[in-house]
Design a protein around this nucleic acid. Structure first.
Length: 261
DNA sequence: ATGACGGAGCGTCTCCGA
């Protein structure tokens, strides 16, 4: 069975909907994990997506964050929220949703940004990673294909940012953040490394400002972490930088993963 | 070469993003 799975931080689903619909039509993923839908579960604009044959599971609590999974190969055992996840400043946040699609267990995640290393948001980020690690430990008890996809807000290596010298005192590249990723790999997940459609590095994010996209000043912070049976089934993976072009894009590009299961 | 911030909310500004 061939399955195409994708992940995309859309930076708000409502203004991005025309682009997402067009991208679904052209790319035809079986499953699409979304991050930063920036609205509520109830307000998710599902109609035109379901008209294309996808089931929708969304989880959003308001104007920030929010995640979703779209699937045309089944959408079962949906879990909204990371078990035991911390909130920030006393508020729950919608940053994870899990579902089983076509026999594959998938989690769409939007890891907290961290802001600056001294900011309480950074400690929250590391705490959130701990709960993600706990979840992965639980999911790894099953033999089925399993992957965590989404915006991890960490560049795994110095090659995953356009110029590491500009990241002193910055989040996304610190030792503890990278150690959190390593802990996921030590638990048995592999970084499904995508090919870039252009240039040398498969960046997935480029700031809107200062011409960062045309200058390819990007970061690889959106990741696909799969267990062994998932990773071994991968036949191709790429970052669709075409989706970052033109008027009204997200600041992230989608990652597409093809599997033969 | 697909381009020089953009989204949301009670909002003409602030917060957030990485």
């Amino acid at each position: 069975m061939t399955v195409r799975v994708a992940t995309w931080n859309v930076n708000s689903i409502v203004p991005r909907l025309p682009r997402v619909l067009d991208w679904l039509d052209r790319t035809a993923p079986d499953v699409l994990c979304l991050q930063e839908i920036k609205n509520t579960t109830e307000a998710f604009p599902a109609e035109e997506i379901t008209a294309r044959g996808y089931e929708v599971a969304a989880y959003g609590l308001g104007r920030w964050n929010g995640v979703a999974i779209l699937s045309r190969v089944g959408l079962d055992d949906v879990v909204r929220g990371l078990p035991g996840e911390p909130g920030f400043d006393g508020q729950a946040e919608a940053r994870a949703i899990g579902a089983t699609c076509g026999g594959i267990r998938l989690w769409s995640v939007y890891v907290p940004n961290g802001r600056e290393p001294q900011n309480p948001h950074y400690a929250y980020k590391l705490e959130w990673f701990e709960k993600l690690s706990d979840l992965v430990g639980e999911e790894m008890r099953n033999a089925r294909p399993f992957a965590v996809l989404g915006d991890f807000n960490v560049a795994p290596t110095d090659d995953d940012v356009w110029d590491i010298t500009l990241f002193a005192e910055s989040t996304h590249v610190t030792g503890p953040e990278r150690a959190a990723l390593k802990k996921l790999r030590d638990a048995g997940l592999s970084d499904v490394f995508p090919r870039p459609l252009k240039y040398d590095h498969p960046f997935t994010y480029w700031d809107y400002r200062a011409g960062n996209f045309p200058n390819n000043k990007g970061m690889r912070i959106d990741l696909v972490y799969g267990n062994e049976v998932f990773a071994k089934a991968v036949t191709d993976s790429y970052v669709d930088r075409e989706a970052r072009k033109g008027k009204g894009p997200s600041d992230h590009a989608p990652i597409v993963v093809d599997l033969e299961l």
